[in-house]
Design a protein around this nucleic acid. Structure first.
Length: 872
DNA sequence: GATTTCACG
DNA sequence: ACGTACGTGAAATCC
């Protein structure tokens, strides 16, 4: 009979757990964090996968057949920390109590044991799952054999089968060894071919299939340098491939599945958990196996939660038509293939209301056509994360409902929106499956759940006055964001690569200078090591501390600038490494190979204030403030068929909103006369005529204006302006004396927040601030500053969202090809043509300036150029 | 995973 | 007395 067999890479998972968790110990001071993390992972896996057999493989000793072949193998690894080593015997003890087999073998790594067991079991037809943090194991993926990789930390896992692997890498799993042969692996100290990285290696493999074939066809490969390198490092490449290959024939590994069955020993486990004070581990254990393994009450568990109904039908054309015909609304959970923002909708589970019929539909079938017609008739349909359906080609409709968006508006503070939480919240008696047999049953559960959630969330939005916000801003914005993500923005790859090489050289030079000046080599990126060099070795005066040691941030370094020549170099090093790693390297990797464009994600459910955020890559923090930084911005260009990037940004939107919302006469007057607001503030606060405001005074007034928007404190202002706290306080005093309307607005807002526990924007967006009732000064003050800032920041976010929707449709109606690419909080970036530039500028000006009628004008600045840096 | 640093509005 | 400006995302280190 076929069984489900799980194999854990004990070494890799322990290592992960050790670094993922804080240094927990028992009361005797013995470290237990790795064992704690590992056991949590094990119980979670057992619950989710429910395997028939499980084994833990472990490395044994440093010497392996690989080090015999190549002594430098893994030679750059730091030695394992003592605290981790100490936990290995505990793992043995733990495995024994859990009744899980444990295998290690002289001369072999855990990988080889895993490879041998896994491939044998898969060949015998068992369903095999390998769990590890080591990407190398992906080479094992084949029919019946999947690999689960820890993503970040230890809690998130990603399962790779052949399809998932191919999707990500573009070639067959086993070719991973050829990839390593070519590019090497720094962490294992596998050399590879110098100068060949992941990009080149993948390209070669896609063309030639294997390393051997690449080496046989060196002559045909383009690029003189590359040819030379391949020829010179032939043997090294072959050796590298050999080192990267997992051994599948480890001797004496006869497989009998029964040997690996799990036989929990309750008494031993209890003793183990008591001894090392691992309460949570015991809890997880009894969740799986019950309180005891025998005796009177065995098996007598009380059922409390309602069982989950995962039934559904497979719908062909007729059933779909019948069910949809009598449906007033549907809830949909799709199954997607492909990657954002180009995913495809292959199948969908549909739940109809009020009948509650549940069907699985293939989108490319007649039944799928029925479903699309249902959507196009603008009948109510509920989704979770509507944006991905738009990516998959579903056309926007006004009666769609997105559960995630609604949940976000109701709880904008949450960092994660998960359906299981919503289920617990709205249906507390309903149990939530810990895992699903397959994606279809997960989709069935999701569709049934969101069908029931929709009326509840809709009612709650209505009740809290956010229906309009939802209908007129958030929902229509989804289509705009989906379009922007699909558009992407063109990045000049050639310039980017040149710049990266140039900056790389500069970094190396600076690094050498720093080592010379310090008289020692150290990791400049490590604040800890840098602190030691600066404040101990070079005996510079430390000015600030963090909770773990010396602070070495830019402010501290700036204050030491003239005390030692090394400081200048460190500041330069920081700047260039930041530009290279965060921008040049990271964005380079995310350029879509065909279009040459970068497709960021605009997240609509992240910020507590209502702003968007951008990730993978974040295109809302591209440098602009320094000359060096602007060279990064200059890499963003109009794509093929376009002539200019055009940037339209609101002028002083937050201060204008402050004027409007506070009703302060003087502030409103300043904007109505289109005066320089910071200069006018300086003149009024410091009591000098407008004509006599110096740049210094103006910049101080500017800082005060910013401070007001953030929820001012004398401490923060004094820090920002490098002036005594007393002086900062007097600035704030005269500011409020001069602008009584603003003071009143701030006071009223905070008072209302104390009363209601929440603040709102002009468009009704809510943010709850429970901490405002805190008796802790720090927490309460923070909540008060949020109360002052959120209505302003949030209203600005509402307004630009409205403007985006307006501009998007007006551009479409005008029939221009110019399109919105990016939003950076108060700025929209478009690509346009010579011919359309005037029209587009006009559309933007009207859309953005006329979108809200305030007691002060809203103004935008528009600039265009051959790249983003020029469009300023 | 937590911490530090730094890029943006 | 308390010791932070508001809102984000990403890279690197830690041992």
């Amino acid at each position: 009979m076929n069984k489900r067999f799980v194999i854990l890479d004990g070494s890799s998972l322990m290592y992960r757990a050790f670094y993922a968790l804080p240094p927990l110990t028992d009361s005797l001071g013995e470290p237990t964090n790795a064992i704690f993390g590992f056991s949590n992972m094990l119980t979670k896996l057992l619950g989710e996968l429910n395997p028939d057999a499980l084994v833990i493989a472990f490395d044994k000793g440093k010497k392996t057949f690989r080090t015999e072949r190549y002594p430098e193998y893994k030679g750059t690894r730091d030695k394992t920390p003592e605290e981790l080593l100490a936990q290995i015997p505990l793992l043995h003890e733990f495995a024994a109590a859990f009744g899980v087999s444990f295998i290690e073998k002289e001369r072999y790594e855990a990988d080889d044991i895993i490879g041998t067991l896994a491939t044998k079991a898969a060949a015998a037809g068992h369903d095999v799952m390998v769990v590890t943090g080591d990407k190398d194991a992906l080479q094992l993926v084949r029919p019946n054999l999947r690999v689960m990789l820890t993503k970040k930390g230890i809690s998130e896992l990603k399962a790779y089968d052949e399809e998932v692997f191919r999707e990500e890498y573009g070639f067959e799993p086993i070719r991973l060894i050829d990839l390593k042969g070519l590019m090497g692996d720094t962490s294992d100290n596998i050399p590879g071919v110098p100068g060949v990285g992941p990009k080149t290696a993948t390209k070669l493999l896609l063309e030639y299939g294997t390393l051997e074939n690449v080496l046989e066809n060196i002559e045909a490969i383009s690029g003189k340098k590359l040819k030379e390198r391949l020829t010179e490092n032939r043997d090294q490449a072959v050796l590298s491939k050999e080192l990267a290959t997992i051994e599948l024939q480890v001797p004496d590994m006869e497989l009998t599945m029964d040997d690996y069955a799990i036989m929990p020993d309750h008494a031993a486990m209890k003793k183990f958990c008591d001894r090392y004070e691992l309460k949570g581990v015991w809890k997880n254990f009894i969740k799986l196996y019950g309180e005891s393994d025998g005796g009177l009450f065995a098996g007598m568990e009380i059922q409390e939660a309602a069982p989950v109904d995962l039934s559904y039908d497979e719908w062909e054309e007729k059933q779909a038509a019948a069910a949809l015909a009598k449906a007033e609304s549907v809830a949909v959970c799709g199954i997607f293939t492909g990657r954002v923002p180009f995913e495809q909708l292959s199948r969908a589970v549909v739940v109809t209301s009020p009948a509650g019929d549940t069907g699985l539909i293939a989108l490319d079938s007649p039944a799928g056509q029925q479903l699309l017609r249902f959507f196009e008739a603008d009948k109510p349909a509920t989704f979770y994360e509507l944006k991905q359906y738009y990516h998959a080609g579903i056309k926007a409709q006004s009666s769609f409902f997105d559960i995630k968006l609604a949940d976000y508006l109701l709880h904008p503070e949450l960092s994660k929106y998960e359906l299981s939480n919503l289920s617990h919240q709205y249906f507390p008696g309903q149990s939530v499956p810990e895992s699903f047999a397959d994606e279809v049953s997960q989709a069935v559960w999701t569709a049934k759940l969101i069908a029931k959630l929709q009326p509840k969330l809709a009612a709650e939005l209505e009740e809290l006055g956010m229906k309009k916000l939802y209908d007129e801003i958030e929902l229509p914005l989804v289509e705009v964001l989906a379009a922007m993500e699909q558009n992407g923005v063109y990045v000049n790859r050639k310039n980017l690569e040149e710049k990266a090489a140039e900056v790389g050289k500069k970094i190396e030079e600076i690094q050498q200078d720093i080592y010379t000046l310090a008289g020692t080599e150290f990791n400049i990126n490590s604040p800890k090591q840098l602190g030691e060099v600066l404040f101990e070795r070079l005996e510079l005066p430390p000015t600030k501390k963090t909770k773990t040691g010396y602070s070495t941030n830019a402010e501290v370094l700036e204050s030491l600038r003239y005390q030692h020549p090394i400081i200048e170099q460190i500041l330069a090093y920081r700047m260039w490494t930041k530009l290279k790693s965060t921008y040049l390297d990271a964005i380079g990797e995310l350029i879509h190979p065909e279009s040459g464009r970068v497709h960021t994600s605009f997240n609509q459910t992240v910020t507590a204030t209502g702003r968007l955020s951008s990730s993978d890559p974040n295109l809302q923090n591209i440098p602009v403030r320094t000359e060096e930084g602007k060279t990064i911005r200059a890499l963003f260009e109009p794509g093929e068929g376009y002539d200019y990037l055009l940037s339209a940004d609101y002028s002083q939107i937050e201060l204008r909103l402050l004027a409007h919302m506070s009703g302060d006469e003087s502030f409103i007057d300043a904007f109505c006369q289109n005066q320089d607001i910071h200069a006018r503030t300086a003149s009024e606060v410091f009591g000098v005529p407008l004509a006599e405001v110096t740049p210094t005074l103006r910049s101080r007034a500017k800082a005060v204006n910013f401070g007001i928007v953030y929820g001012i404190s004398d401490y923060g202002l004094s820090r920002d302006l490098h002036i005594p706290k007393k002086e900062a306080a007097s600035y704030i005093d005269s500011y409020f004396a001069r602008y009584p309307g603003i003071r009143k607005f701030m006071d009223d807002t905070v008072a209302a927040a104390h009363e209601t526990g929440c603040v709102t924007t002009l468009y009704g967006r809510r943010r709850e601030l429970p901490a405002i009732k805190s008796r802790n000064f720090m927490q309460r003050s923070l909540a008060e500053r949020m109360a002052m800032n959120t209505p302003i920041q949030g209203t600005a976010a509402d307004i630009i969202k409205l403007a985006m929707i307006e501009a998007y449709h007006r551009l479409q109606d005008a029939g221009v090809k110019s399109r919105i690419l990016l939003q950076v909080h108060d700025e929209l970036v478009l690509e346009t043509t010579e011919k359309e530039r005037e029209t587009v500028s006009k559309i933007l000006k009207e859309s953005m300036e006329q979108v809200a009628k305030l007691s002060v004008p809203l103004l935008i600045d528009i600039h265009s150029g051959k790249n983003w840096a020029e469009a300023k």
